Amino acid sequence: MALRTYASVLLRQSAPEGVDWRTMPVLARALLLTRASVLPLTIVGAGQGLLYAWWRGTISDTATGVSGLLLGLAAFLGANLAHAANNLANDWRDYKDGLDRPGYPRADYSPHPIASGAMSSRTLLTAIAILTGLGALLGGFTMVMRADLMLGLFAVAGLILSWGYTDPPLRLKRRGLGELSVLLVWGPLMGGGTYLAATGTIDSTALLATLPWGMIATAVLFGKHLDKIEADGSRGVRTFVVRIGEQRARAGTLALLSGGYICVALFGALGIFPWIVAPLAGFGALSARAALKIVAAPRPAAPPPGYPLWPLWHVGAAFLAGRPAMGALFVGLILGTLLGI
């Protein structure tokens, strides 16, 4: 029963069918409320920097003997804590702004921390502060041990873009800049930051290597905004997807996903990634065809029987379409390191 519960929370962002989420274990409820099902975006985004450094053989200890691997892992964990905190912060801000209420997709597809009655606004802010503080401690640890202000710049830039996604004065989502911020955060800032923490150096190739996953993470956000296009448009939330319209946004989502796969394969062929990544990306793209077809088509008027995420539709398809690319990157970098290719 416990395994079924956690699998449903992490893979479907919902309680198992027929189970009231309020009766789940505390940890399962916490994972559900923080939307831990989307953390694989950060696991790959931050993890690829560490794996890339491992493959290139550039992980290095500090001058005082602090392990580069330890610092890379600290940056990786800090990024995931920051993502969880940011999910909760976005929920708090959108609830305060009157968006996340019944009838708005976020409050309908999965329990909202406040709207569902799971916690008060004060408790939510406390949870955000704790997660943010832990992430900041890990980031500060890597910066101090490396004695490198560049790490601080990466962290601050990521924090500004992540919190500015919904919060004033930036409100990037409402200005049509949220998608660009995700490309930057889940691409060069996250992967490059972890690489820098593990190696003490950064170069243009290491930053370029983060582009494919940044594109795929952005495609997932496109899918999410596609599912909310009517709700956002009617409430004055002018995301980039709202601004360009539903048909162009579907084409853009497909282009980002396709571009991500093409870049992964191309980088493998060019030696930026291990060559084995290229065929893995090809096989991954073939396995993603069904999900890509869903991305390319309009959303149905009603969900199929048993579908758990309605009214979300395109975001789930985009996430599933990007999952084989995740496997190609991780497996390819691990095999490339272990086999020396």
Results as ranks from 00 to 15, higher is better:
S116Q: 15
D94L: 15
G49Y: 01
N80V: 00
E246W: 05
G45A: 11
G65K: 05
P102Q: 03
D232M: 11
L170F: 15
M24S: 08
R101Q: 07
G332R: 03
A127D: 05
F154E: 00
L226A: 07
A206Q: 01
L254D: 02
L131T: 06
G223D: 10
V185R: 03
E17I: 14
L11Y: 04
A288Q: 09
I262C: 03
L149P: 06
E179K: 07
W55I: 04
R250D: 10
A297T: 14
G340C: 11
G78A: 00
Y109P: 12
G164V: 09
L3F: 09
A325M: 07
L339M: 01
L196K: 00
L320N: 15
R174D: 15
I43Q: 05
A147T: 06
L189Q: 02
A302H: 06
G260P: 10
P308F: 03
A206G: 02
L161T: 08
V331G: 08
G233H: 12
T64K: 07
F76E: 03
A206S: 08
G268E: 02
P274E: 09
G164P: 03
L41Y: 06
L32A: 05
D20Y: 10
A269I: 11
L254A: 12
R22V: 09
L71W: 08
L172E: 08
L11S: 14
L312V: 14
G57P: 14
L27A: 15
R4N: 15
A2Y: 12
G158F: 04
A129P: 15
I114K: 13
S204P: 13
L153E: 00
A107I: 05
V44A: 02
W54I: 04
H112L: 12
A15S: 13
Y307D: 13
A157P: 00
T166F: 14
D108E: 14
L134Y: 13
L184R: 08
L270A: 14
A290M: 13
K228V: 12
G200M: 06
T42V: 04
G340T: 12
I262V: 10
L335K: 06
H314Q: 11
L131A: 12
R289P: 04
Y109W: 12
W275I: 13
M150L: 14
P188H: 07
K96A: 15
G252Y: 04
D232I: 06
G117N: 10
S110F: 02
R101L: 12
I130Y: 06
